[in-house]
Amino acid sequence: MKTVKLFTLLTLFIVTSSCSNDNDDEIFLQIETNSVMNLHAPQTGGMDQMGNPVPISGEFTKFDFSTGTTTTSDTEWDIAFRGTSIIINGGVSSGSTDEPERTGNAAAYMATGTIASVKAVNTSLLEQDSVNGYVLSNWYTYAGPPTHLITPTAGKIIVVRTQDGKYAKIELLSYYKDAPENPDAYTDEERYFTFNYVYQPNEGELTFE
């Protein structure tokens, strides 16, 4: 029943905001279940018209779980997107052009399950971006010719520790603008992320229930 309730919330796209302006220290903040649609994550470079690789550059689109919106802040961001690259605000850069400086202590891992079945954070799995690559590099499946579709792999849930030590879980749904039911890599605009997430705003709290 929990799942059904959750999905109802999701489909209604209810954006709840936390009521943390209360004076009471003991108050337990409500878990936030949200959807983000069409987070635009452009990049330049990649491949030229002849199909030759060209270095990728361009600003990452940064996202902050505490506000539930994208941000241009240099420090108050948790996760950032550019094309198929997803980085977190924790660890070190792998050296690609225009990567923002990581100022926080974010960490992440990829869990297997549905968004409902990931009920708690397993902190032993948390990792940070490193010179060897991004923790969240493995989120999609590329279909290859002829469709060339990029699809978030079903059953992969991103679990994130935010830059300020809170936790969130994300299910990526689409890489194409307006999250079409049957995307077409030739006509639908790519690099638009649509995802559902659950944010646990209470510091140190490891469960999502």
Binding site: F7, T114, S117, A154, G155, E171, L173, S174, A179, N196
Partner: peptide, 15 residues
């Protein structure tokens, strides 16, 4: 239970 699918390509996954 390690395999998941979606009903359509933009809907949440299930086991």
């Amino acid at each position: 239970g390690e395999v998941f699918a979606r009903k359509s390509s933009n809907s949440p996954a299930f086991q």
